[in-house]
Design a protein around this nucleic acid. Sequence first.
RNA 1: GGGUCUGUAGCUCAGCUGGUUAGAGCACCGCCUUGAUAAGGCGGGGGUCACAGGUUCGAGUCCUGUCAGACCCA
Length: 920
Amino acid sequence: MSDKKKQSNTYKDSLNLPQTDFPMRANLVEREPQRLENWENQDLYRQIVDQRKAENAPTFILHDGPPFANGDVHMGTALNKVLKDLVIKSRSMAGYYTPFIPGWDCHGLPIEFKVVEKTRGLEPAEIRRRSEEYARRFIDIQRHSFRRLGVFGDWQNPYLTLDPSYEADVIRTFASLVEKDLVYCSKKPVLWSFGAQTALAEAEVEYEDRTDPAIFVKFPISSGDLAGQSSLVIWTTTPWTLPANLGIALQSRFEYLRATFTHAESGRSEDLIIARPLLESFIAKTGFRPSGKEQAVSAADLEGHTADHPLLDRTSKIILADFVTDEAGTGAVHVAPGHGSDDYVAGLQNDLGLLSPVDDLGKFTDEVGIEQLVGLHVFKANPIVIELLEEKGALIAREDYLHSYPHCWRSKTPIIFRSVEQFFVRIDSIREKALEEIDKVEWLPHWGRNRIRGTVESRPDWCISRQRTWGVPLPVFFPAGKPDEPIVDAGLARKVADLTEDQGTNLWFEKDDAWWAEQLDLPAGTTRCHDTLDVWIDSGSSHVAVLDKRPELHTPADLYLEATDQHRGWFQSSLMLSVAHRGIAPYKTVMTHGFVVDKDRKKISKSDAKKKGKPMDAAHFYNQYGADILRLWVSSVDWQNEVPFDENLFKQTADTYRRIRNTLRILLGNLHDFDADTQSVENKDLTLIDRWILERLHVVTRECIEAYGKYEFRKVFNTLNQFCAVDLSSLYIDITKDRMYCEATDSAKRRATQTAMARVFESLTRLMAPILVYTADEAWEFLGREKSIHLQKFPAADPAFASGDKAATPVVEELLKLRTCIQQEIEDARQKKLIGSNLEARVSLDIPENATLETILDDQATAEEFLIVSDLTIKRNRDTLVATISKTDNGKCARCWRHEKTVGKIESHSDLCERCADVV
RNA sequence: GGGUCUGUAGCUCAGCUGGUUAGAGCACCGCCUUGAUAAGGCGGGGGUCACAGGUUCGAGUCCUGUCAGACCCA
C-alpha cells in the first residue's frame, strides 16, 4: 500500500495536471464588491460606450422606466433592472452603442405622506424640502443596489423627475397639451376635509366609528308603465346629499318586487319596488311588509325612465350600475354624481350632470335650491332634510346607523365628497391617433398590444390635477376675484418653465402671487393655482425631458421594458403624452415581464413576506449568494409570465453556477502551459473529438447570440448550462483527460486539445458575460487579458466548424450510442462488484455494420480513448449492438492507470505502458 | 363581475406549422473515483402534459367549458 502510493506519487510529478489559481469557491459576496470598485475606478461604463461610439456603432436605446424613490430594491425591482442590463450588455457585445441613463420617479403622495406623517402642519415649501431629502435618500440606497447587481449605466448622472430641468420639461409638455387644446377644466368629486379646507388623498384618511341617520326615501316613478303608480325606495346614510341627487341606480342581476307594502303599526300603505335579495332586511328595518298584489319587475324595464325628486321640482334618472350590491339598502341606490366617485362615473356614463352645492367650509351654497339649507353645514342639515322629507311624505323609515366613516387625519373632522374644479386632458382628441401608433409598435409578448389597446380604448379623460404639494405645479392662474375662470395658457406655462429651469419649481411655492404676476406681466391680483400635476405626467414626459434632451439618446427609444402593470401606467401615459406632443409613440418596441410571485404562483405581499420571515430584498440575496447568482436566476426564468420565487430556487441556481464555474476552472487548469498564439495547431491537425467540441461550440455560439437578440435569456442559460454540464464536463473534458495529463507536454494531440479548449474558453466567457458579469470578467482576467471582458464583442461562430460533409458530429453521435450501451453494461458489472473503474473493464463489442464508424473503429487507440476503456475488442457480426464486460487481465499502468497489454513488457519501466514509458 | 394572459416530471425550462415508447439540467436514490476532490464520472426511479368534453386516422400541440393563478379594471 505504502509502496503503491509512493510509486504513484513519483509518476504524478511526470503528469501535466491542471493548474490554476482560479478559485473553485467563488466567494462572490466578498469578491464582487472588489471587482465592482475596480470597474468604477476605471469608469468601465464610460469606456464601453466611448469605445462603441468611436467605432461608429449603431445606437440602441433602452429607456429606463423610473422606479419610485421609496423603499429598498426588492426582487421585483431587481428582476426588472437586471433584465434591462441583460439587454444592454448583450446589445453592447453584439456591437451596438448602448448608453443607459437610469432614472427615478421622485414626486408623489407616498413620499409626501411619509414626510407629513412624521410632522404635521408644515408649510408647503418645507414639505417639499423634506420630500426631496427623503427621495434622494432612497435614490442613493437603490442606486447602490443596482450597481452592486452589476448593472452598468450613467449612475453619476441619472435622470430625476425632481431635477429643475426635468420639472421644467414637464411643464413644457403640459404647455404642449394646452396648445393643442387638450386641457379643460371641470368639476369632479374629491375627498374633502372641511376642517382643513383641503382635498385629501386616500392615504390621508383615517376611519373612525360614527353614527349617522340612515333613511329610506321613496322616489315616485314618473315615466313608463309604472308612472304614478309605484315608487323606488333608496337608502342612504348621507341625507344631506339628496339635494344633489340626479339618478337612481339598479342592479341588472337583481330581480325586483313591486308590491303594496303596509306598515304593521301605523297601517300606512305604499306601492313600492324593492330588490328581492334585500326584501327581508327591508321588512325588518322599516316595518313595511308586502300585503296584497305582488309583481316582479326587472331592472331593465325601469332603466331610462325617471322618478320624481322628493324635495325638488326635478326628476331623477333610473340607470343600471354594477356597484349596486345586496349588502345593504334596497337594491336602488341614490346617485349624486357630485358627492361620490362611483356616482361620478355613473353620472358621466349616463349623462346625469353634476351638482355639488357645498363650499370649502362644508356649507350649502345657493345652488342647493332649498332655502332652509343655504349657509347650513351639511351635517347640521341632515335633520332638516329628514324633516322636509317627512313633510312631503317621502320618508319611509329612519334609523341610527353606526358605521366606520372616513375622517381627516389632520383636523379629525369627518370627510365629505365634494366636487371641485379639476383639470383634464381630452383623451378623445388623441385616442384614434394613439391606437394607430400602438399598431406600429412591436409588443413583446405580442398580446401586450391587446392589453394596451384595451386600456386606451376605455380610458376616460385624464384627470391631471392633484391637490398636493410634492409635485410639479400646475402652471395655471386665476384673475383677481374669479377663482372659477382659470387662465390656462401655453405661453404662460412656458414662461413658468423658463423661470424654474434653473431654480426649480420650489419657486412656485416660495414666491407669492404678486411676484409671479409681476414676472409674467399679469394684472395685479392674479392668483396662482395650488394644484400639482399627476405624477404620471411627470414620468410620462420622460421622452421629452430625457430622450429628447440627452445628446446620446433619441426619440423614439428602441425599447421600453417594464412589468405588465405598466400597460395602464407608464407605457400609456408616455404614449398619450408623446402622441399629443409629437404625434408618434415614444418607443419602437415594448417588452413586459411578469411579477415575482411565490413558488405556488401566488402574489407576495410585503407584510406576508415579513411575517413568514421570507426576505424579499435583493440585498439579502446578493449579500448571501452573490449578484451573479441573482443574475443567473433572472436569466433562467420565463419573464413573460409570473416569475416564481423562493429561496430554494436560489440554491438550485447556485448549483448551476458551481458547475459552470468549475468548467471554467478546469479549462483554465488545462490551459496553464499553453500559449494560443504560438502553440495552437492548425484546424486540419485537430483530432475528431476536438473538431466535435468546436462544432458544438459553433452551434452554441450561434444559438446564444440569436437568443440574446430575441431577449430569450432563458435559452442562453439552458444552452450554456448544457454545454458546460454535458458537452464539456461529462464528455470532452473527461475524454481528453488522458491525453491532457499523460501525453507528452508538447505532443500534437495535447496541443490540439488545448487549441480547442482555448477557443471554447474564450467564446464561453464572452457568451456568458452579459449574465455572469463578475465571473466572466474574473475568468477573462485569469486568461491573462488586461481589459475587461465587457469591452469585448460576442465571438463569431467559426464557419470552419459549421456542420458539413466532413463534420465530426455525426461520427461522435454514433460513438455516443456505443458509449451508452457500454456504460450500461459496465454499470451492471460495477454493481455486481466485478470491476471498479471503467479502466478495469475488458469490453467486447459486437456491432452491426455501420458506415459512419468504419474508419474510426479501425483506430483502436482513438476508440479506447473516446470510450474511456483500456481493453476493447470489436467484432462486426451482429444485427444489434451488444457489449460484454469482464475484468481485464492486463496490468495497470502506474502512471496513466490504464490496463494495457504492454504493461510489464518494457524493460526500463516494468510498471508502465508503452506510451507512458515513451513519455517518461 | 369584466378585460389580457398562464397552467408539461419535486424545481427551472425544451417540445417548430397536430404524427413513432413526452425531452434536458438541477434535486433525489445507488455505485465508481480520489490526478477538476468543499470537485468529477456512470446508472436509476419519477410525468393520466391542471381537469372535462369535442374536432381528427391521430392532440401536450386546434376548439369549447371547468378549476387554479397573475396583472389591469369594476
